[in-house]
Nucleic acid binder design. Structure first.
Lengths: 204, 204
DNA sequence: TATCAATTTTGACAGTGTCAACTTTATGTG
DNA sequence: CACATAAAGTTGACACTGTCAAAATTGATA
């Protein structure tokens, strides 16, 4: 992990930050398939091997970009939740779900990166922290909906995460039939969510 | 799209099929990250450019492997459904959900390939057909659960798909907190499914 | 001012996917 | 049976990638 503090590097100015920005832009434009460390260096105006001082590998840079993605993600969901009165826990959870899917659709490449399994994931403290913050945010809202005294908050939160992530993924990866209206799926599925996680044993 | 019929080629025997098998094995062993057309050729015992006669690009080979994956996927879910009496539509859907997640966990690399957005997806008839068959299978079981007369079967089926795909994806990509027991999440979430898709307006 | 370490560049290496040109081989037609 | 023909496979090349080692440059510090 390179320096988290920015001691205003020597030659370039702040190559670490410039690379992250250039990388994020490249990712958004071209997708992960066409993401290249050398192109990041080109956009930053440095030689192809310059990034080596700040990122041990291309995966390290991607981890940092993913971490930034999680941070923006959490901000988006927070903003969406704040638009709903905090007493109305259910609607608030639904608003977060909408914002979740909206983020994925608006930032598909980085969203895919954020949820892709990477061997470097465990090595990036920043990414782990940012990812954990997102989980905590969801966990908190689920608690607000079903109450803190229950013992199954974690698995209920996982249920919510799975449903919303599934919707977002299938839309972004274009795996729903073309005839299907995404918005209807989103609204209908989200609307059943508070009851589903509150409910007891919904066995058929 | 190369010849779907197998006219017993000249030199190798059946390089098309051999490449698909070698590719599937390589994918299962090494994952998509380390999937290489040249390694497929090596395993098939041919030169690095030989695949060109059967697959226009590496993506074409991957599409074929993904199509085979969907076919096996459908067979697995069929077998799981057949183990439950057909009158019990709800439990049958749940059994399919279990098989869905089990397939993803047991065949993670090809599962990720199957649900990855690819530009070549629309060009492969085989892949499109196999993917469509999986959708039809799910659609049929959802109809059995909620009744054929309803007008929202498609969106309810999408709901089911999203939940199960979300669970599978988050497990495979290791995005659930480590403390969470996947099996509990699976059982609890699936159990709520029949009621959730039958239910009317579950708004908070 | 001179040293020194951090930063960047240069050049190289082993891989990759894809292409064009060439060689080999099986087939079916005379 | 001989042979033209087209498919199948090989060879060699190109541009590109990530990564590494060595050299060169630069800013800060003593």
């Amino acid at each position: 992990m390179p320096a988290k503090t920015k001691p205003k590097p020597y030659h370039h100015g702040d190559l670490y930050e410039t690379l992250v920005q250039a990388g994020a832009a490249l990712l958004a434009e071209q997708g992960l398939e066409n993401f290249t460390l050398r192109e990041c260096a080109r956009r930053a105006g440095v030689s192809h091997a310059a990034p080596k001082n700040h990122f041990a590998s291309v995966e390290d840079l991607l981890c940092e970009i993913a971490a930034r993605g999680f941070e923006q993600f959490v901000r988006d969901l927070d903003a969406a939740a704040d638009a709903v009165p905090s007493q109305e826990a259910g609607p608030r959870l639904i608003a977060m779900g909408r914002a979740y899917v909206a983020f994925a659709r608006a930032n598909a490449p980085v969203y895919l990166l954020m949820f892709r399994h990477s061997l470097q994931f465990d090595k990036s403290n920043h990414l782990q922290a940012a990812s954990h913050a997102a989980w905590q945010q969801l966990h908190g809202q689920v608690t607000a909906v079903i109450g803190a005294e229950r013992g199954d908050i974690d698995t209920r939160a996982a249920h919510v995460w799975a449903l919303v992530h599934g919707i977002a993924s299938l839309i972004v990866d274009r795996r729903f039939p073309a005839a299907l209206d995404p918005q209807t799926v989103i609204e209908q599925s989200l609307s059943s969510l508070p009851a589903a996680i509150r409910g007891g044993l919904g066995v058929s």
